[in-house]
C-alpha cells in the first residue's frame, strides 16, 4: 500500500524529456497542489503538451521518446521500471485538445472505460453520475443510446471529461481542452473545471492567458532556452502572483503581451 499523505498531488524532479537526441523539455521541478487547478502556459513549441503528456505516460507512444528525472505520485516514480503505464493512466485521466469521443453511443463512451477497468457497480448510475459531474446529464439524458458524434463540439468535450471522471482518477490532465470550441462552450468547460477541482487535481495546458488567469490557482510559465531550443519552467507560483507581480522579466513580458 502506498502512502496517500504526500502534501502534493504529483511532483516532478529534474524531469527532462527527450525525442531521440533532442531534449524537448529540460529540468522541470514542479509540485502540483492537491485539488487545485494548475495551468501551464508559454509560447507555442515550448513543450507544454510534452510535459503534460509525461504525467500519464502518453509520450510512451512516441517511439523515440524517453525521460530522465522523476515524476512522483505519492512518492512513487511513475517512470520506475516496475511501473505499469496502463495503471498510471487509470489514476491520471486526460482530456485532449480536440474532442475525441469514441464512435459509439454516449452511454458506451463512458461505460467502456469503466468496464475495461473492472468496474463492478451499477453502470447506469456511474454513467449518470459522470454525466452530471461533467454538467452534461440534462442535455443528453434522453438520448444516451445515440451516437456521441451527434453532439456539438462543446458537448463532445464535456462527454470526454465525463468519460475521464468515470474511471475516477485523482488527477485530470487537460491539453488545451477549449481551443477547438466556441466562447460559450469554453465558458461552460471553465465553470465545470471549478466544480471538478472539489474532487480532482487538474493540470491544464493553455495558450490563452485570460483563461489561465480565470480558471487556475497556480501557474507554471514555460519558455525555451535560447541556445538549445529546449523548454523549461521558468517560473511557478500562485496564479495571481504570476499575473500581477512576476519575478521573472520574461514572464512579465509574456503575460502582458509584449512577448510572444
Amino acid at each position: 500500500m502506498q502512502t496517500e499523505n504526500s502534501p502534493y498531488a504529483i511532483e516532478t524532479r529534474n524531469l527532462s524529456i527527450f525525442y531521440g537526441s533532442f531534449e524537448a523539455v529540460k529540468d522541470v521541478n514542479l509540485q502540483i497542489q492537491k485539488q487545485k487547478i494548475t495551468a501551464i502556459i508559454g509560447p507555442s513549441g515550448c513543450g507544454k503538451s510534452t510535459l503534460l503528456r509525461a504525467f500519464n505516460r502518453m509520450n510512451d507512444f512516441v517511439p523515440t521518446s524517453r525521460v530522465s528525472g522523476e515524476i512522483l505520485l505519492h512518492g512513487t516514480n511513475l517512470y520506475g521500471k516496475e511501473i505499469d503505464p496502463v495503471e498510471v493512466r487509470r489514476r491520471i485521466g486526460m482530456v485532449f485538445q480536440k474532442p475525441n469521443p469514441f464512435p459509439k453511443s454516449i452511454y458506451e463512451n463512458i461505460a467502456w472505460g469503466a468496464r475495461i477497468n473492472g468496474f463492478k457497480g451499477n453502470m447506469d448510475d456511474l454513467v449518470e453520475q459522470s454525466l452530471r459531474g461533467a454538467a452534461l446529464w440534462d442535455e443528453v439524458k434522453d438520448k444516451l443510446k445515440q451516437s456521441a458524434y451527434a453532439l456539438s463540439g462543446g458537448q463532445q468535450q464535456r462527454l470526454c471529461i465525463a468519460r475521464a471522471i468515470a474511471i475516477q482518477p485523482e488527477i485530470i490532465l487537460m491539453d488545451e481542452p477549449a481551443s477547438a470550441l466556441d466562447p460559450i462552450s469554453t465558458l461552460r468547460i471553465e465553470e465545470l473545471m471549478q466544480e471538478l477541482k472539489k474532487n480532482y487535481t487538474i493540470i491544464i495546458v493553455t495558450h490563452n492567458m485570460q483563461q489561465a488567469a480565470r480558471v487556475s490557482d497556480y501557474t507554471a510559465m514555460m519558455m525555451l532556452y535560447e541556445n538549445t531550443r529546449s523548454g523549461t519552467v521558468i517560473e511557478y507560483d500562485e496564479t495571481k502572483t504570476i499575473f500581477t507581480r512576476p519575478k521573472d522579466k520574461r514572464t512579465e513580458e509574456y503575460v502582458t503581451g509584449r512577448f510572444g
Binding site: 500500500m1 502506498q2 505520485l73 512513487t76 511513475l78 516496475e82 511501473i83 505499469d84 496502463v86 495503471e87 498510471v88 487509470r90 489514476r91 477497468n117 468496474f119 453520475q129 452530471r132 459531474g133 454538467a135 446529464w137 440534462d138 474511471i167 475516477q168 482518477p169 485523482e170 466544480e195 472539489k198 474532487n199 480532482y200
Partner: peptide, 20 residues
C-alpha cells in the same frame, strides 16, 4: 449537478501502480 458528486469513491482507483 455536482452536489451528487461530493464524495468520489476512491476504492475503484488502482492502489498499486506495479506492472502487472
Amino acid at each position: 449537478a455536482a452536489a451528487k458528486q461530493e464524495t468520489v469513491n476512491t476504492t475503484f482507483r488502482p492502489k498499486i501502480l506495479k506492472r502487472k
